[in-house]
Computed example of a mutant assay.
Amino acid sequence: MTTKSVAPSNSANKLWFAAIKPPMYSVAVMPVWVGTAVAFAETRAINTAIFITYLLASIFILAWMNLSNDVFDSETGIDANKHHSLVNLTGDKSLIFWLGNAFLALGILGSSAIAWWQKDFTLLAIVLVGCALGYTYQGPPFRLGYQGVGEIICFICFGPLAVSAAYYSQTQSWSSTSLTASIIIGITTSLILFCSHFHQVKDDLAAGKRSPIVRLGTARGAQLIPWFCGFIYALTLLFTLLGLFPIQTLLIFASLPFAIQLTRHVQAYHNQPDKVSNCKFIAVALHFWSGLLFGLGFVL
């Protein structure tokens, strides 16, 4: 692997696209969509202004997480070979740090606005807990992602916390169905992070990052992919049979081709960084379509 700061084979546009990561923002959208869909299924009502405000707040907070992670990773040297790091592209770590903080402020401002409208600051408290937990993923002195627990943090932040917060923003109450639905979203979100490690084992090892793939090896990690995917569909079916989910949520099975594609791709190329590197985008597609169809089941 090269240690140059610029990859000549990649165009500037491709590098910037990879740095900004537009497809990854479905990670912020799907929890809000599913939590709101469950609220609609139970109340047959939706507050559009709150939905849009909280959706934008979630996107801003994810932007903060992405930017701050680039900053924190630049400090450990793990991104030395990551040509699409925003810090590497701009050469200005301070700029990216404060831009990230600006997005965080916007996200908290949006959540605060909802809390003010509703005269209930529970939503804001959930958001702040999620932000604090998200900081521990890469932020010093915690850097828990370097200890291999990033997937657990991801599951909690984008599963139970995010989906429950979206539900609460609409109903100002709690729901066992919303909490159960958050498990599905939490798994698919954590799967994206899990898949992002396959192509960077050497860099992770050099920086002392003990990601799950570093600990397990790429072959054993690849063997876990069908289990992760299987849980998504098995749990949906189980909770539907138990009456927690409406039968329409079985629409999620239409996303099964993405799960099959992801499983086959990772198992075929798990030890070939150049070929396996795009598996996280297949995982994003699985996350998006499974979440969209799952939430649509509640709406219908």
Rank of each mutant, 00 (worst) to 15 (best):
P212L: 05
G221C: 02
G217R: 00
L235S: 09
R210Q: 03
T240I: 11
L250R: 00
L262D: 01
A254W: 15
A268V: 15
Q261T: 14
A219P: 06
T218F: 03
F231D: 03
S211V: 02
T218K: 03
F253D: 13
K209N: 05
F245R: 10
S255R: 03
L224I: 01
H265F: 04
A207R: 01
F239T: 09
P273A: 07
F258H: 10
I260R: 05
Q248Y: 15
F253P: 13
L235P: 08
T218C: 06
I213V: 10
S211A: 06
Q272A: 11
F258N: 08
I232R: 10
W227N: 01
A207S: 05
P212Q: 03
T218Q: 05
L224E: 00
A268K: 14
F245P: 08
L216C: 05
T218M: 04
I252E: 14
V266W: 06
N271T: 04
A268W: 14
T249D: 09
F245Q: 10
L262G: 02
A268C: 15
I225F: 04
A259E: 07
R264H: 15
I247S: 14
T218W: 01
T218I: 01
F228E: 05
T249V: 10
I252L: 14
P212T: 01
G208K: 01
Q267N: 10
A254I: 14
W227Q: 05
P257S: 08
T240M: 11
V266G: 04
I247E: 15
A222L: 01
Q272D: 12
V214F: 05
I213T: 07
I225A: 00
I213C: 08
